[in-house]
Simulated scan of single mutants.
Amino acid sequence: MVPISGPNVDSWIDEMSRLASRFVAGFETMYGYPPGEHYVTRVADSGGRDALAAALRDAGARDLIEFYSHVAQISLPDVGPGFFVDEAEYVVEGCAALSQHR
Rank of each mutant, 00 (worst) to 15 (best):
A53R: 15
Y31P: 05
G80K: 07
H101F: 00
H38Q: 15
V92T: 05
Q100Y: 00
A51E: 08
V91T: 12
L56N: 11
A20V: 06
M16K: 13
A72Y: 10
F67H: 04
A55K: 07
T29V: 06
D78G: 13
S21T: 06
S11V: 12
S5E: 15
P81C: 04
I13Q: 07
A53D: 11
A44L: 14
R102C: 01
S17N: 11
L19W: 09
V24M: 02
I65Q: 09
D14R: 13
R102T: 03
V24I: 04
G32F: 07
E28Q: 14
F84I: 03
A54I: 00
P81W: 01
G80C: 03
P77A: 03
V85K: 08
A61M: 06
H101R: 06
D10I: 14
S99G: 01
C95N: 07
S21R: 12
E28R: 13
G32R: 06
R42N: 11
E37S: 00
Y68H: 09
A44D: 15
L98N: 00
G48C: 12
D50N: 14
F67P: 02
A44Y: 06
A97H: 13
P34R: 10
E37C: 00
N8Q: 07
V43N: 09
V91A: 03
Q100E: 07
G48P: 10
C95F: 10
L76K: 07
G48M: 11
H70L: 02
V2E: 07
N8D: 03
A51N: 04
I65P: 07
N8I: 05
D58C: 11
E15G: 09
P77L: 05
I74P: 06
V79E: 10
L64C: 11
V43T: 14
R49A: 15
A44M: 11
F84H: 05
A59D: 14
D50K: 12
H38E: 12
L76E: 00
M30A: 08
I74S: 01
F23E: 00
V43C: 08
V9T: 13
M16I: 04
T41G: 00
R57L: 04
G26H: 15
A61W: 05
D50H: 08
S69H: 08
A44H: 08
R62C: 09
A25R: 07
E15P: 13
Y33N: 05
E87Y: 10
V2R: 12
P77K: 02
Y39H: 00
A54Q: 12
L52F: 03
G32D: 00
E66H: 10
V92H: 03
V9K: 10
G60A: 12
R22V: 01
P35R: 09
G47V: 13
A88G: 00
N8C: 03
